[in-house]
Design a protein around this nucleic acid. Structure first.
Lengths: 212, 212
DNA sequence: GGTATCGAATACTCATTGGTATCGAAATAT
DNA sequence: ATATTTCGATACCAATGAGTATTCGATACC
């Protein structure tokens, strides 16, 4: 009883640096996504992560650099779930429909992703350094899509109806276009609509419509 | 000889108000397109138009309002050249190819348009009032496309292979997606590539590939 | 010709915010 | 234990640019 009735300063263990960095990036993603780069206050990002500006400048050299780090992080993290879906066993038609549904879901559910993508694109359009990173990211995405398509076409029996690279570009751009449209006019692009659009193009490119 | 050897102040005729407004809007389009909304200085816009900030505030209530006016102006002006191309007489296949070429050209040549569109979309994604205007503009575009497609399908003989509205959404989003891709990674989307992508989808949607 | 009005130029304000310098507590080394 | 380093918090600064108040000249009107 003699030792402690006082507040007991309880020496706070310091958050691991890597964790600080991670939280800051997550907060940056959120804030950049919902306000855009220019309208995002460095202090708001820090606060959202549970820190102060000091933490930001301790981990990143500048606002621009934080943005770049986020962009690079996303480049690495880019999910390949879609490809797995396409590669999954079973009927090719089912696989394609599954992939379409997955992408459509992401378009309407994960708006942060879409918004960030839009912000990345907007900045890439006018900033050379950003453009280089974004271009690389997109190339990698199209490349992956291209491979998946080639595989699907092979699986589908007859040789590729269209050049897989072209098909990849089409699907990639259609996806991004749908995402953008959903952000600009949510009512116009429901999950079902997006899915239908993707399925339509996907099957048109890979599997000539089952003639009646 | 007695009257004038002096510099002769040459009273400058005042620019008509409508003209001032027009030039300001044109300058705003240019500056907003190349720097984005937030990084555009009102004074730079004014200067680019040959005036000063005073002119801006005399014609528009605020920066946001200038942006809105520009957006609305573009809504009205939206060209219907594409539709004309599709409607033009001759073979349907040729008409479609012509339309695809036209759109592809615009994607790579008129970057101001693409950049502005991106900026509009980005702001629409996070600002309710802007979103309303942008959504209306896009709906109108899709609507027009939808009608053109319905007509083309009818002209092509058999009844519409796919719902014209869905086809319109697909082509609209693909176009915007290609435009965005071109801005983010110009090398990936040449005029030829874009044209091929559009033609492929267009014919797949409207005219089942000529069976070999 | 003189006066009122209109519209753009000029000069200023004021809030905002990226960046910096410094501080202090926790971790680490000695 | 104590010195040193690390790293985030705090306080501050300078620049920037939207918006405003005012001026001044050109057109319109009497």
């Amino acid at each position: 009883m003699s030792q402690s009735d006082e507040p007991l300063p309880e020496p706070t263990p310091r958050t691991p640096r890597a964790e600080v960095r991670r939280r800051l990036l997550a907060a940056a993603a959120k804030v950049f996504a919902e306000r855009g780069y220019a309208d995002s206050r460095l202090e708001d990002i820090a606060r959202a992560a549970g820190f102060t500006k000091g933490a930001v400048y301790s981990n990143f050299g500048s606002k621009q650099e934080l943005f770049g780090a986020l962009l690079r992080e996303r480049s690495d993290t880019e999910s390949t779930a879609v490809l797995a879906e396409v590669r999954g066993g079973g009927d090719l038609g089912d696989a394609l429909r599954g992939a379409a549904r997955l992408v459509a879901r992401r378009i309407v559910d994960d708006t942060e992703r879409g918004r960030l993508g839009l912000e990345f694109a907007a900045r890439a359009a006018r900033e050379e350094p950003t453009r280089e990173v974004v271009a690389a990211l997109r190339r990698a995405q199209r490349e992956a899509a291209s491979r998946a398509i080639a595989e699907a076409a092979r699986r589908g029996g007859r040789g590729p109806a269209v050049d897989p690279e072209l098909a990849a570009l089409i699907l990639h751009c259609l996806t991004n276009g749908l995402s953008m449209e959903h952000l600009a006019d949510p009512a116009a692009v429901s999950a079902e609509t997006a899915e239908q659009a993707l399925t339509t193009v996907l099957t048109a490119l890979l599997a000539p419509p089952p003639r009646s």
